[in-house]
Structure formats: structure tokens, C-alpha cells
Design a protein around this nucleic acid. Structure first.
Lengths: 298, 298
DNA sequence: GGGCATCCATAACCGCAGGCTATAAGAACT
DNA sequence: AGTTCTTATAGCCTGCGGTTATGGATGCCC
């Protein structure tokens, strides 16, 4: 059972005032019993108690403290959604949703934004992060219109793609690792090391970032991670190492992980993908912009 | 008037199926008229039409396309909030909300997270970005418990702080600018250039990043920006230049902006701030962790 | 072209949720 | 002990979110 957005506002008001009476009369302009009832209902809907009421004072429980910042964020996003929806309605602006998994960087976003401002003046880009567990990067479910992703994509899913950049693969190591003293590492020296892998649900990308094709025997998978941050956290903790594209080294710079180039591996290919049957102009222009960014002026 | 979260689910279902009948019977298990009525109500609540119904087919309007990804995000956050609230309730985990304005970087987050895992095992950190327009970084309104911010803070607002790092100020320029050929630039050479400023509502930080104290006459403000990305966008577009701390150069690397050190300016101070009267252990430990990260092992 | 199927809108109806007022009950302070 | 402040409970009513039944427009098929 879902709550109403209003209930979240009620909750926030009580959490900030730490008083049902004051929140009800001063901020929400409803009666105190009504507010008590709604909060109680929110609590039963979430199966937790949000406030400790000891007859005189009200305090947040751990659950309440956990919900508060998230409730604020949801309300904030809702306000934003209302506003931008009204705006889109007024200007008839269309939205192209771009999926990505790890941070893109490489100056791609501003460059593409600029190009699209010329070619598709009333389209706006909206970026949406998709977990590795969706190998179609949200394209299959229609959550995004186009996606920036590392190849390969799963086959026979009706997805089309073009390569927009090619980069050597590097490896992420904990700073104390013996191999971290080397400037560059042949992949042969890594085949017996434990690796942090993408989840199995990530499809062919899991094999690619384990470099399964270049191994004499299956990789030792020390842990699986759902996000890039999780992966690096695991690397920093010394659980294992992980491959990543050269361009991400700069993006994910941190002082508890070091990065070294690996040779003897085929490079990684960054691509732009879309649903094959989707022949909209905006999609075509977006794809061409992505390609032009790297194959053009450089 | 607020919608219910359920209405957003209804909207998403119709937007994905592009059919009221199918969405109602196959996915939502309600009657089609009920669904039509709810969508209509959502439309009147937002003052826009979300779907074009031409008697036979249903298509998204521009407003609908704008709302769709945002509605998905809100639902996603809600699911997450439910889950993490339940989790916090089960483990009695407490939450310390950390406010920030620009990206923090510098390895601070993982380092502090590690230290807190030892000293406060059942506290978790939650990060929350706050716009420049709030000079108290959300502390005043209670939106955050502690904040990582550049100094100075506004005076007489009951905020306490400690310095955790000191960095030279650099300047961001468009790559074609005549000063971009220099390796380092005396601030005296910049006083007559147009600058991108923080909004007036940002309080004393606006003056600090304009280096108002080091100018013989008031700065020329070419534009105001609400976020770091907006600032760099304006710099890339050639509207003006902007100062930033040395450590942010790496974080905000992009190929349409170049960064150069500036000499003749006092350095910027990165601080950790909290509400003076807030004497909770967790706050004290967090503050000490931040300080220790830079003044400790390095 | 007429009949049929499909799909959305409208109408009429019903039960419960969300609001109200009035009041009870516990805690702290005088 | 009495006063005051605060939350909880009880009972009531309106309106909203659901239902079924039906109408009207469009496309398809024979």
C-alpha cells in the first residue's frame, strides 16, 4: 500500500516541530487528531514506528530519522516535477532520456548538449542512471530513449548501437598491492588474482570486464558489486582488483585506489545504443552527435 | 494539491502501455473508468494534459514525456525509502545527514566513512546536496546535521565550524581566452575581467569567490549561477571567468574549460560546520574525523 | 456499406478514508 | 491539588476512489 505525498509532508512537519499539536495548527492547518491518525497510518503502511510519544514529548525513532531526509528529497523531486512538467507543457519541449551506468565524463555531455541545442532546439536531455543488473540499460523497458554504455550489448534484444570511443583497459588496485609498484602490467600477471565482478545479471558486460576471453582458465571472483562505487570500495578494502576503461581513471580518482594500464587486452568500446525500431529524428541526431564528438574535431 | 504516489504508478503504467484499458486490467487490476478518472485528476492537479486521446490511440504529450522519467524516479526513491526505513528500524541504525554544495572529492568521503564505521558502528552517513542560495547549507532549517563547506559562513547564525583543509584559488577560463596561455596568473591581471558570481542569497561566499576583498574596485558580474555546473557552462560559453579551489580542478575536469592557478590571493578554507548547540556525540566524532583526514597521516 | 470489435468517456452508485468536534487521560509545573 | 499542555480515542460527515453499466467514436472485416 502506498502513501500519499501529503502524508510525507505531514511527517516532515511533525519531525521538524517535534509536536503534533503545533505541526497541525501552525503549519498544516488541520486538526491535531487528523494529523495523529495520518501519521499512525503512515506508520502501519511502513510497518515501523516513526515517533516515540511518551505522553509529553515526541522524538524521532531510528526509522523516523532514516525516513526524514528521504521524504524531504521525494517532496523536493515532486515539486520539481510539477514545475518542469508545467514548463514542458508551456514550451512544448520534448524530453530525450539518456541512460548510463557509470559516470560518463570525457566532456561528452556538454558537447552533445551544445550540438543538440542547435539541431533540436526544443528537445531537452534528461539523464538517468541504470543499474548494471539491467543489461539493456533501461532501453528494453522503455525507461530511457538512448543509452551511453560499454559494449558488448546482449544479442537479439532488438538494440542497435554505434561505437563512439575506444579506450585501453586499466586495472584498479589497492595502493599497497605488490603490483601497484609497476607502471604497466601485462594481463598475464593478473589471471590468478581475485577480481571484483559485475553481477551475473549484467549480461555479456560481466565477461568483458573480467576479460574472460583472454584467460586460460575461469577468473576467481572475490565479490560482486552493483555499482562502480561499490566496486572501488571493494578494491580499496583489498578484496580484489577490477578492470576499467582508461578514461574512467580520472573520473573515479581517489586516494585509496591506484590505477595502472594493462597490456595484452583488447580495448574497451564505448557505445551509444537505442531501440532498433525507434526511428525518431531526435534519436538519430543524438546518436550522430555522440559519434561526432569523438570522431570529429579531435 | 498533492497527488498520491499511486497516481504516479497509474500514470507510468498508462504511459508505458499507451492504453488505458490494458494498463487498467493487465497491470493495475482496476477498472478502466477508475483509471481514466484518476489520470484526469492528476492532469487537473498539475494543470496540464498528459495524454492526447484521439478516440482510438493514446500518446504522451510533451508534458507527459517530461513527467514520466521524474515519476519513475520518485517511485524508485519511495521504494528505496520504505526499504531503508524498515532496515533502520530493524537495526536501530541512526542517520547523520551531511550537507554539501559542490562535489566534495579529495577522498574525504571514503576516509570519513571508514573512521565512523569504527567509532560509531550504528550510524550511517547520508549525503544531501544543498543549493548555494542557502548560506547555512541546510543547517538552519535542520535539513542536515553537519555540512562540508567553503568558508566563511554567515555570522551570528549559531553555526560552529572547523577548518579541515586550505587550498589555493584557481581560475576557470574558456580555452580560447588570451590568459589561458599563461601557466599562472597574478590576480591583478583579472580584476577587470567579467566574472560569474554565486547568487546574492549565497551570503559571504559570493564575496569570497569574487575575491571582493582583494579588488581595488567592485567586480564586473557577467552572470549569476546556481550550481557549479551552471558556472562552468557559463565559463565555457565565454560569459566570464570564475575562481575555484585547487582541489576542484580535478573534480570538474572538462575539455571546454581550462584551469590556471592564481597568485596574490588568500587561500580558500574548506570547513566542516554544525549547529553550535548540537552537542551530540555523532556530530563531534564526525567533525573530528574530517579534521583528522587531512591533518592526520598526510 | 453495415455490422462488429475496440477503446475511451460518462453516469450512477457505494464504502471507506480523511477530515472535523468533543472529550479523556497522562505528565509537568505551580 | 489544580492547572495546563499534549496526545489518544470516539463518533460523525463529506467526498474520493473504486465499482458496474452504458454510450459514442473509430477502425476492421466481410
Amino acid at each position: 500500500m502506498d502513501a500519499r505525498l501529503q502524508d510525507l509532508r505531514y511527517f516532515i512537519a511533525v519531525a521538524e516541530e517535534l509536536s503534533f499539536t503545533r505541526a497541525a495548527s501552525d503549519r498544516l492547518f488541520i486538526s491535531q487528531p487528523a494529523l495523529s491518525k495520518q501519521i499512525r497510518q503512515l506508520e502501519t503502511c511502513l510497518w515501523v514506528t516513526l515517533f516515540d510519544r511518551d505522553r509529553r514529548t515526541v522524538t524521532l525513532t531510528a526509522a523516523g530519522a532514516a525516513l526524514l531526509p528521504r521524504a524531504r528529497r521525494i517532496i523536493e523531486l515532486w515539486e520539481q516535477a510539477r514545475q518542469e512538467t508545467a514548463e514542458a507543457s508551456a514550451t512544448e519541449q520534448a524530453i530525450l532520456t539518456v541512460g548510463f551506468q557509470t559516470r560518463i565524463g570525457r566532456g561528452l555531455i556538454p558537447a552533445v548538449t551544445d550540438r543538440l541545442a542547435e539541431d533540436l532546439p526544443n528537445w531537452r536531455l534528461l539523464f538517468r542512471q541504470v543499474p548494471w543488473s539491467d543489461p539493456s540499460i533501461g532501453l528494453a523497458k522503455g525507461e530511457v530513449d538512448v543509452a551511453i554504455t560499454w559494449l558488448p550489448l546482449p544479442r537479439d534484444t532488438g538494440l542497435s548501437w554505434r561505437v563512439i570511443a575506444t579506450e585501453q583497459r586499466w586495472v584498479a588496485l589497492p595502493p599497497g598491492h605488490r603490483l601497484a609498484r609497476r607502471n604497466a602490467i601485462p594481463f598475464a600477471d593478473l589471471v590468478d588474482e581475485p577480481f571484483i565482478a559485475l553481477p551475473a545479471s549484467a549480461g555479456p558486460l560481466r565477461e568483458f570486464w573480467l576479460a574472460a576471453a583472454d584467460r586460460p582458465r575461469p577468473a576467481t571472483v572475490a565479490a560482486e558489486a552493483e555499482t562502480a562505487e561499490e566496486t572501488l570500495e571493494a578494491v580499496a578494502a583489498g578484496l580484489g582488483m577490477a578492470l576499467l576503461p582508461a578514461g574512467n581513471v580520472e573520473i573515479y580518482q581517489r586516494d585509496d585506489v591506484v590505477y595502472r594500464p594493462v597490456h595484452g587486452l583488447s580495448p574497451g568500446e564505448l557505445g551509444v545504443a537505442w531501440r532498433g525500431p525507434d526511428r525518431r529524428d531526435a534519436v538519430r541526431v543524438f546518436v550522430n552527435s555522440c559519434i561526432g564528438c569523438f570522431c570529429g574535431p579531435d
